[in-house]
Simulated assay, not measured.
Amino acid sequence: MENSVLMQMIVPLAIIGAAQLVVSIVLIVILRKLLLGDTMNAIGRLKSAEEDLGRKEADLQQKLDEHETEFARKQAEAEDNLQRQREASEQDLAKLKERMVADARGQADKIVSEAQLGKDKIREQLVREMNEKAVEFAGELFRLVISQTVTESLNAAFVNELIEALEEVDETSIHVEAAEAEFGSSHPLMPEQKKKLEELLARKFDVNVAIEEKVRPELLAGLTIRLGSLEIDASLLNRYREGVGEMKKAV
């Protein structure tokens, strides 16, 4: 009987213990599922965050690479532009230097040329003065050495020579327009010489003038005629000038 009572007491206790055990197990399973679910969710979120972070890092790295590539390209382009500008500046500087050297050389050549021209002009002036002095000296020597009678005869010969030369002129080859005429003679012309010259001028050049010569002893012998643009110098002084010129050519 005691055993029966004891059994009656133990069975409920066992049932209660078993129920408690089952409840505990259920609670543990539920808690485990809850904890495991939270952990998995957390792990999933962590993995998602890591993946998102990885993508962002990859995007950031890609952008950094792109920026570095673009920076390198722009840097190379800037260096290339700078090099071209430097080369262009050097070329411009070289051209400027060449122009300056050419201008300086041109100025130097111009100065030398002007100096040479001035030298040539001075030489020509000296030669002209020497020629004039030679002619003057010859004239003075002529007047000192040759008598008046001889100079008169020589003058007549020069005038007659001019008349003969005018006789041979082809009047169709020369056209003279002269409103007036000028005559110079080393000695007064003889009447027959004046008349002959007036006839020749009228016939050869269609110029009707009365000869009124101006006596110019410096001509030494002969005479000069000016009809408009036509000038005839048949004087001994002019012969001296021509002779000096020929002697200069020979030298």
Results as ranks from 00 to 15, higher is better:
Gly222Val: 04
Arg241Trp: 12
Pro188Asn: 06
Glu246Phe: 07
Arg105Asp: 09
Leu6His: 10
Ala14Asp: 05
Lys63Asp: 04
Lys97Cys: 01
Arg55Tyr: 05
Lys204Pro: 02
Glu124Thr: 14
Val101Phe: 05
Gln85Tyr: 12
Arg32Pro: 01
Thr151Arg: 15
Ala165Ser: 12
Glu70Met: 03
Ala76Pro: 02
Ala156Phe: 03
Lys95His: 09
Lys204Gln: 03
Leu6Val: 13
Leu237Gly: 01
Glu164Leu: 10
Ala179Gly: 14
Ser173Gly: 02
Ala42Asp: 15
Phe205Ser: 00
Ile15Arg: 15
Gln148Ser: 14
Arg128Thr: 12
Ile28Glu: 11
Ser229Gln: 09
Met247Thr: 10
Ser229Trp: 01
Phe183Lys: 00
Arg73Asn: 12
Ser229Thr: 10
Ile30Asp: 06
His187Trp: 04
Gly245Ala: 14
Val209Cys: 05
Met190Gly: 08
Asp80Ala: 14
Val127Tyr: 11
His67Arg: 08
Val159Trp: 00
Glu57Val: 13
Val127Ile: 15
Ala234Met: 03
Ala165Val: 12
Leu96Phe: 07
Arg203Trp: 09
Tyr240Asn: 01
Glu218Pro: 00
Val209Lys: 01
Ala134His: 03
Leu35Asp: 05
Arg239Gly: 01
Glu140Ser: 09
Gly54Leu: 08
Ile43Ser: 08
Val26Trp: 14
Leu60Pro: 02
Val169Met: 01
Asp80Asn: 09
Met7Ser: 14
Leu82Thr: 08
Gly54Phe: 02
Leu197Arg: 01
Asp92Trp: 12
Lys196Gly: 04
Pro191Ser: 04
Val101Pro: 00
Thr149Met: 05
Ile225Lys: 00
Lys121Phe: 10
Ala104Gln: 04
Arg73Gly: 04
Ile25Leu: 14
Asn131Lys: 15
Lys194Glu: 06
Asp233Ile: 03
Val29Gln: 07
Glu57Asp: 10
Gly222Glu: 03
Glu79Leu: 11
Ala76Tyr: 13
Lys248Arg: 14
Leu189Thr: 01
Arg128Ser: 11
Gln61Ala: 15
Thr149Val: 14
Ala138Val: 06
Pro12Leu: 07
Ile174Gly: 03
Leu53Ile: 12
Lys204Glu: 06
Ala78Leu: 13
Glu177Lys: 11
Ala78Lys: 05
Glu51Ser: 10
Leu200His: 02
Glu132Tyr: 06
Leu201Cys: 02
Lys249Leu: 07
Lys95Thr: 10
Asp206Met: 02
Ile122Cys: 05
Ala78Met: 12
Val244Cys: 01
Ser89Met: 12
Arg86Phe: 11
Glu199Arg: 07
Val176Leu: 04
Gly243Ile: 04
Leu93His: 11
Ile16Val: 08
Ser185Gln: 01
Arg123Ser: 09
Gln61Trp: 09
Asn160Thr: 08
Gly184Val: 00
Gly106Pro: 02
Met9Cys: 03
Ile25Arg: 15
Glu212Lys: 13
Val22Ala: 14
Ala19Ser: 15
Glu213Cys: 05
His67Met: 13
Gln107Ile: 09
Leu223Met: 14
Val176Glu: 00
Leu223Cys: 05
Ala156Thr: 11
Ser147Leu: 02
Leu60Met: 10
Ser24Phe: 15
Gln83Ile: 05
Leu34Tyr: 09
Met7Phe: 14
Leu21Met: 07
Ile30Leu: 14
His67Cys: 04
Ile10His: 04
Gln148Tyr: 11
Ile10Val: 11
Asp59Ala: 13
Ala19Cys: 09
Gly139Phe: 02
Gly17Phe: 13
Met7Leu: 11
Leu53Thr: 08
